[in-house]
């Protein structure tokens, strides 16, 4: 079963797209670097056309309503426009950088929505994803290798990874939903992470 869909080629069908469909990782990274330098709107739109539909799909998968997802996509892309000059291609691929932005916005939104649950007066939020002084440089991962590693995971481990990343489920939610012990959720994820790392030569 192909839990994750095809991944290596972008299957982006963005009907609005007028940009050439050139979305090899290197070229996207370069576009983001150039955007930081030249503030060119055509470059921005090329990045937008590539990522916006994927971000929306990702957010809807996590349970965001269509309008909220769209709002967050725009917020994320505005962030990309604003902060592109701080993007460092040696530290992360463009898509990892944008993934972090979207993830953090989604979490901020969830926390804001639940802020009424905070009994404490000092509901000043903690910073869950601080900018760290040490940002490891990782070799860019090979999409095809990762895709086949994911497809080679035992079904249950693939399901766990899917539920964590696509559905945003906590370990306990997964345990309840699948009626398996919490310890099995943790060990299944642990094994999956190890296998994916191994398949990529010790580095994801």
């Amino acid at each position: 079963m192909d839990t994750f869909g095809s991944a290596s080629e972008p299957r982006g069908k963005s009907p609005n797209s007028s940009a050439p469909n050139n979305s090899a990782p290197d070229s996207i990274n370069q576009k983001l670097v150039d955007l930081g330098r030249y503030r060119d709107k055509r470059l921005f739109l090329a990045i937008y056309d590539h990522f916006a539909p994927r971000l929306k799909s990702y957010l809807v998968g996590r349970g965001a309503h269509s309008e909220i997802a769209e709002e967050l996509v725009q917020e994320a892309m505005l962030s990309v426009w604003r902060h592109s000059s701080t993007y460092n291609p040696d530290k992360a691929t463009a898509s990892t950088w944008i993934f972090r932005i979207a993830r953090n916005l989604w979490i901020d939104r969830m926390r804001r929505d639940k802020a009424h649950l905070l009994t404490s007066l000092d509901s000043c939020p903690t910073d869950l994803y601080p900018d760290l002084s040490f940002q490891p440089s990782l070799a860019p991962l090979d999409g095809d290798t990762l895709k086949s590693a994911i497809n080679n995971l035992p079904q249950q481990q693939a399901q766990l990874v899917y539920k964590v990343y696509y559905q945003g489920k906590t370990h306990r939610e997964i345990a309840d939903e699948c009626d398996i012990p919490l310890g099995s959720v943790k060990s299944g994820l642990r094994l999956a992470f190890g296998k994916l790392k191994n398949a990529l030569g010790g580095e994801l």
Binding site: K13, S95, T96, A102, R103, P136, L138, Y165, E203
Partner: peptide, 16 residues
């Protein structure tokens, strides 16, 4: 950071 790379890969391929 590695687990984030996995996340962005899955996000990028999230157009079923």
């Amino acid at each position: 950071a590695e687990a984030e790379q996995l996340g962005r890969f899955l996000m990028e391929s999230s157009l079923p």
